[in-house]
Design a protein around this nucleic acid. Structure first.
Lengths: 351, 351
DNA sequence: GTGAAAGCGCTAACAA
DNA sequence: TTGTTAGCGCTTTCAC
């Protein structure tokens, strides 16, 4: 028969009781000390911290979450971690979250509803205190799971009628108008748009803003100059080819994201078309890499830091101050044009 | 005086007791059913699952972890999530982990020991069951934290004398030898190497393998042809410039990673040097993007999927089967040459 | 095969 | 200011 040997502490991490015993105080005092409660005398506090250091103790977050009901975990779901835009975004989000004592759970949905559902489920199981859904589309079906459980939520470009949900609006309009203005000023009249997949809200919004900006600039859009791509490099290559087959070709292309623009750059090079002399190209996102394309990409910057900060702020408010009715429910993230080397006057200046 | 109102279940998620009550069984039976214990009759099991579905119940992982001592969380620490190599790696690791019922915690150390220490600390607090340290260097100082707590560990290119630690060895030798052989066969004699930062184990190993491969091919290395860069695109640009200032310039450059090679491609283009006619360039990693550089990059492939799988496998073995003494402690991940468009015979074939 | 009951490590209410 | 104690939601003996 095997008797449980309770005294063998070796190998087992120290717990709050171990600390209390060593510091000769109650476990409540240890808990208070750790959580910075002002109601602990300095004398005891010192003893506790000393014991903590000696034992290299730290609290078990699971026990903490269980009893306090707060996990201090935030979820972030992105569309596709393989698109450089998202790692940069995650990086920022993590930094801010960690600085505020939160842990993050990352998932990519890959624009697949089933995968998204599984992400949401896993986050629910881990009792996240909020989720940033930066998938830019297809959220609706699974979001109920979150709102039903009363989880704070922040969505990009999607307003949800729920008291716990906030929205981040991206002001593409400013950036896109600046881009069209920039091209028009250079003399471009025939401007095409390589759109993102229509299942993404962001893609639709960007396309609409393109149309509006063209109209505002008094420029006509040919139907065939707007092509739906998929926000990947390959998609950009395909979109470019489609444009080149047209009878009247555009002299400039605005792309729904940088990866598409990079695809265009590549395809143009392969066909011997020089950018920007023969064709101007503008991207959107300003991923780190945009600075290093050949030629360096003129693009519309969408700050990942700003976006990450807005997302975190929205969640933190809902999580830490759920009662406050006058919380900010909408956040606006701006865009701006960054002119680099992929735009110039068209070879045959338009008339 | 406020009395606690226990009956108000609205808003509160259902717990195991709610399920037990609805299914008219004990909570033990619910627990057994969920965990697939064979000792539950089909009759009750059905009732339980029905109740679970009706309530949309799922277990609280914190409570589960607390009592079972198993968190089902794995940590992965990478060097820099901004280098495309790592998101691809994380993606694979997550897929495998999730498929096996684990959650993952991601952190990037940014090659900063203090940041690494904080990552490790956070992972410890969350009671991870294992950590994959894919930082390729600088791990030693903080790893004690993990080994002292008896956490399974898997390191890239670093053998740790600890029963819980495994190592993933990357067989650069094969790939690098193939690359040098490929260049030599094309007629190159003057081959330079743009190394990674020496603080990374991987950088050192790759450089050594380059030297060995050159010697094996009977090729001399000029001291100035080996330049330490930093595995970034910018670093590649700088490295290229340094090489171009030399009296006798190399006709081919092997780079310690793809980002460096992309920098070289860019710098060469800026200076009007044609790749591969005037200069051959070889990368290492084969990130997704390598296929789309101009020209498409010849590179040494290091499979992220294979690496992720090895890392997961190592951790799973240690976590789930800690007693087994004949566990695999070392894993080898292979590399192979992928010939694309950035290599060709030198303009003035060496003689 | 099933249930009752003892905790997992911690926080928070209450007592002193 | 400090300590005692009742759980948080679950798994896991141990009886039946």
């Amino acid at each position: 028969m095997v008797r449980k040997v309770k005294s063998r502490t070796a190998g087992k991490p120290p717990d709050i009781r171990t600390v209390a015993a060593l510091a000769k105080v109650s476990i409540a005092t240890v808990s208070r000390t750790i959580n910075g409660s002002p109601a602990v005398s300095e004398r005891l506090s010192k003893r506790v911290w000393l014991a903590i250091e000696q034992l290299k103790y730290f609290p078990n977050t699971h026990a903490r979450s269980l009893v306090s009901g707060r996990s201090r975990i935030l979820g972030i779901i992105v569309e596709n971690i393989t698109n450089p835009f998202f790692p940069e975004l995650i990086q920022s989000f993590e930094e801010i979250a960690v600085a505020h004592g939160y842990e993050i759970l990352v998932s990519s949905s890959n624009s697949d509803t089933a995968v998204l559902a599984s992400c949401v489920r896993r986050m629910l199981e881990r009792k996240v205190e909020g989720v940033a859904v930066l998938t830019f589309g297809q959220e609706e079906p699974v979001l109920d799971q979150l709102t039903h459980r009363n989880i704070p939520l922040v969505l990009a470009e999607f307003r949800l009628d729920d008291p716990k949900a906030s929205t981040i609006l991206l002001d593409y309009t400013t950036g896109i108008q600046a881009a069209i203005h920039h091209l028009a000023e250079l003399g471009h009249r025939k401007i095409a748009f390589l759109a993102g997949p229509h299942k993404l809200h962001s893609a639709i919004t960007r396309e609409n803003d393109f149309r509006a900006a063209m109209e505002a600039a008094g420029l006509a859009i040919q139907k065939k100059w707007v092509v739906e791509c998929d926000h990947t490099l390959k998609g950009g290559v395909a979109g470019y080819r489609q444009l080149q087959e047209l009878a009247t070709r555009p002299t400039a292309i605005l792309c729904s994201n940088d990866m598409t623009a990079i695809g265009v750059l590549r395809a143009a090079y392969m066909e011997g078309l020089r950018v920007p002399q023969d064709l101007s190209v503008v991207g959107l996102d300003d991923i780190d890499f945009a600075e290093f394309t050949l030629p360096p990409l003129t693009t519309i910057r969408l700050s990942r830091t700003e976006l990450a900060r807005a997302a975190f702020e929205a969640l933190r408010q809902q999580a830490e101050d759920p009662g406050n009715p006058k919380k900010q429910r909408e956040f606006l993230v701006s865009t701006s044009l960054v002119v680099r080397g992929s735009t110039a006057a068209p070879a045959t200046a338009a008339r």
